[in-house]
Amino acid sequence: MFYPNSPQTSPQLTQIPYGQQYAMMQRQIQQPYHPFATTEPQARLYPYHYQGPIQQEQGGFITQQSTAASPQYVQMRVTPVDQSIMSGYPNQTANGSSSSSFNYNIHPQQQQQQQQQQQQLRHHAMPVGSVPLQDDRYRKQLIVNYLAPDVTSTDLHELFSRFGELDGARIIYDKQTNMSKGYGFVYFCHAEDAKEAVERMSGYEFHGKWLKVGYSTNPLNIVPSNSSPYVHAGSRGAAG
């Protein structure tokens, strides 16, 4: 039997160049792979992502010199942007860049009308829970959420009447099932009393439920100042 490094198959040491006398086997001759043993700084910083320098080929596509990437890492192929796409944008300079302001050559009167329309939209648009300043009635009506099913309009009136005089209180019921929808409205005579009720009743436990109280901004629920107070009856038909 002959071994790869046996004296019968191995040459004389004098015939082997210096430095390879003890590297006779194939696994010894093959050098191990060192990912950080390279002179390129990109490979030292990113050993798993770097795959060699990027070269520009004919046709405008950018390719990489090395083989496919590892399945664990996804390499994105980048193509140059066609400058003709950006030619339609206004205020574009000769080098292809555009300024931040756009001039669509709008007539001054049209621009003024658009600004007025935007101001009107901001004036009428009102986020949930906010209180408008032009109508004091919005500051007097509250919406009470997360009410228990057994709470009546009379219970709601008695709960909030300790903060001040009320114009009314009612629970909203479903017309088909005649069941409470879980929320109601309270109408105060003074805005200061309503503000105190919002601050003190939010998070209050009532009939096993934690109440959420806020201003009601729905104009359909506003009680006119010259109208008669609501009837605080315990029956659902009268309260709904």
Rank of each mutant, 00 (worst) to 15 (best):
122 R>W: 15
35 P>A: 13
75 Q>A: 08
98 S>M: 15
37 A>P: 14
185 F>S: 00
203 G>P: 01
236 R>W: 01
139 R>W: 03
117 Q>L: 12
64 Q>K: 12
157 H>K: 13
100 S>Y: 10
114 Q>R: 08
16 I>N: 06
71 P>N: 05
93 T>K: 11
170 R>W: 00
116 Q>D: 06
48 Y>T: 05
65 Q>S: 08
73 Y>K: 02
173 Y>C: 05
16 I>R: 11
86 M>I: 14
189 C>G: 07
113 Q>L: 12
145 N>S: 01
156 L>M: 06
104 Y>S: 01
170 R>V: 00
91 N>T: 10
220 L>T: 11
73 Y>V: 04
100 S>N: 14
69 A>V: 14
100 S>K: 06
182 G>N: 03
153 S>F: 12
146 Y>W: 00
224 P>R: 12
192 E>F: 13
191 A>R: 02
29 I>T: 06
75 Q>T: 08
103 N>S: 07
90 P>E: 05
230 Y>N: 04
96 G>H: 06
44 R>Y: 15
206 F>K: 00
215 Y>F: 04
173 Y>E: 04
116 Q>S: 10
183 Y>G: 01
154 T>F: 06
147 L>R: 03
112 Q>I: 13
6 S>M: 15
67 T>W: 15
24 M>A: 07
232 H>C: 07
15 Q>W: 15
126 M>V: 10
141 Q>H: 01
102 F>I: 08
136 D>C: 02
16 I>A: 03
17 P>F: 14
17 P>N: 05
207 H>L: 01
81 V>M: 13
156 L>A: 07
128 V>T: 07
190 H>Y: 10
162 R>F: 09
26 Q>R: 06
165 E>D: 08
94 A>T: 06
142 L>K: 01
65 Q>M: 14
175 K>C: 05
88 G>P: 09
105 N>T: 08
229 P>D: 03
99 S>Y: 14
37 A>G: 06
233 A>N: 04
155 D>T: 09
120 Q>R: 11
113 Q>A: 12
95 N>C: 06
113 Q>E: 08
216 S>W: 00
66 S>D: 08
217 T>K: 06
155 D>Q: 15
46 Y>H: 11
26 Q>T: 12
198 V>I: 07
8 Q>M: 12
43 A>G: 05
202 S>I: 05
225 S>P: 05
12 Q>A: 10
84 S>Y: 15
30 Q>A: 02
66 S>Y: 15
53 P>V: 14
214 G>F: 01
225 S>E: 01
97 S>F: 15
240 G>V: 12
206 F>Q: 01
182 G>W: 01
60 G>C: 14
171 I>K: 01
31 Q>S: 08
94 A>V: 13
96 G>T: 05
208 G>S: 07
162 R>Q: 13
239 A>T: 14
110 Q>R: 12
52 G>N: 07
50 Y>T: 12
176 Q>D: 05
